[in-house]
């Protein structure tokens, strides 16, 4: 019985290794494209992703739209609440470069939290977002390896 339990646990781990719970912080017109990810035409739940309503349950945060001073505090709080391997996607020209228009008072997302992946476009296609979601896991593994080696170097130099 215990053998069966372990088998089920390991197989569920195998199927959920690329799965992520996605927390959506979206404003503006990119949010329409992001919502269409869970629609029947671009079904991203067959790849293992799903939307959750709270940042404490998610490991991936997708940010789109313009970010002003009041909204920046919320994004920093949400990033602190993420679980596991934290990853952040910056979607659209507004979140990446503080709105494309020159006369703006907005903040770049990369100034607030470490961004894993940029998805350029205004707004990007849903296929573009699916491509980014497929790339996040491999990129996150590579980044964590680099970070581990980097941290090890720091510890050695200090001690």
């Amino acid at each position: 019985m215990l053998w069966l339990k372990n088998k089920v646990h390991s197989s569920s781990q195998y199927f959920e290794q690329n799965a992520r719970r996605v927390y959506l912080v979206s404003k503006g017109c990119c949010s329409i494209e992001l919502e269409s990810l869970s629609s029947s035409s671009y079904d991203f739940e067959r790849l293992g992703f799903s939307f959750v309503q709270r940042p404490e349950k998610a490991s991936l945060m997708i940010v789109s739209g313009w970010i002003d001073d009041a909204f920046a505090d919320k994004i920093i709080q949400d990033y602190a609440c993420l679980q596991g391997d934290k990853a952040v996607l910056a979607v659209g020209a507004c979140a990446i470069s503080a709105s494309p228009y020159i006369s703006n008072v907005n903040i770049r997302l990369a100034d607030l939290v470490p961004v894993t992946l940029y998805v350029p476009g205004c707004p990007p296609r849903p296929e573009d977002l699916l491509e980014a979601l497929l790339r996040v896991n491999t990129l996150q593994k590579a980044l964590t390896k680099e970070q581990i080696t980097y941290l090890g170097g720091v510890v050695k130099s200090n001690g």
Binding site: P114, L117, Y118, G121, E127, D128, E131, A132, R135, L143
Partner: peptide, 12 residues
């Protein structure tokens, strides 16, 4: 062709 996503620090 649509724009491909890239990691932070890639050449855009």
């Amino acid at each position: 062709e649509w724009q491909m996503p890239g990691i932070n620090g890639a050449n855009f």
